[in-house]
Write a protein that binds this DNA or RNA. Structure first.
Lengths: 140, 140
DNA sequence: CAATGTCAGATGTATTATGCAACTAACACC
DNA sequence: GGTGTTAGTTGCATAATACATCTGACATTG
């Protein structure tokens, strides 16, 4: 059994490798859509519509960046804007029909990649891995 | 026990969350050094010196990007270049004394962050988590 | 051994994501 | 109602990146 330092080093290295690879593959989700814009779109779906400020806060991005990225999403016809009835300074952003379809398709593709990657994993290992990741991420 | 689909979905979400956070914190390693340049520097140390082409291939970057980033590292005094004795077209890049010190310091800091994060984890859980990550990454 | 094609690296140019600062319009509170 | 705050946009600058091109140095083949 390797000692604790070695094991932590391995986890560090493997997580870093994962992050690097994820970043490199990020742009392949949809033409014209980056990982950030895609994730924003997904967040709008999860929340059932949110404001630009919420996105900025959630993703730790400047509001100007959010503004430009949501402009891209609008130009692509993937979101619709509604004036916030409670605060006329803001707008509610939500995926359009096309946006929802794109999200479904992207989910399907990404999920398929993961399914394939885990075909040889047993149920118990999957459970444990999932639990460890949640435990790790929850600590941030 | 949740079913397999739900578990895989959780893993997917948690790994994506990790990647996003890693990217955001990447720039904090050293002033003037990005995650990419830092990782390049580390790769030079691991390999005991390599060429720009090797870096481009390893990190899936264009050679022009590598050229500019290594120029940054040189400007910061973190690497030294030697003509490749076997092929005078190329150069061997390796960390300078300062570069090695920076890597040690960065390793120490990052490791400390990880150590802290895992203080409450038992040895067996650490082992398993490490193994799962390796298994996952090896499948790429 | 000379010519042609390939490779390593550098540089010019363009694109993209990003942040900061300044601005406008709307809100909130006193 | 006036003053300070907030949501969003836009102007400007910066950084990482890719593609195309250029220059040497290598390699292969006639």
């Amino acid at each position: 059994m390797p000692d604790r330092d070695v094991t932590i080093g391995t986890i560090q290295r493997e997580l870093t490798a994962f992050a690097r690879r994820a970043r490199q593959k990020a742009a392949q989700i949809h033409p014209g859509l980056s990982l950030v814009t895609y994730t924003m779109l997904d967040h709008m779906r999860e929340t059932g519509g949110c404001r630009g400020t919420d996105l900025a806060e959630h993703f730790l991005l400047d509001k100007s960046t959010v503004s430009r990225q949501t402009a891209v999403l609008e130009r692509l016809g993937l979101i619709v804007r509604e004036p916030d009835p409670d605060d006329r300074r803001g707008q509610i952003l939500r995926p359009s029909e096309n946006g929802l379809h794109l999200l479904e398709e992207a989910h399907r593709q990404r999920r398929a990649t993961f399914e394939e990657r885990f075909t040889e994993w047993g149920d118990e290992d999957l459970e444990r891995f999932s639990g460890y990741l949640q435990r790790y991420n929850a600590a941030s």
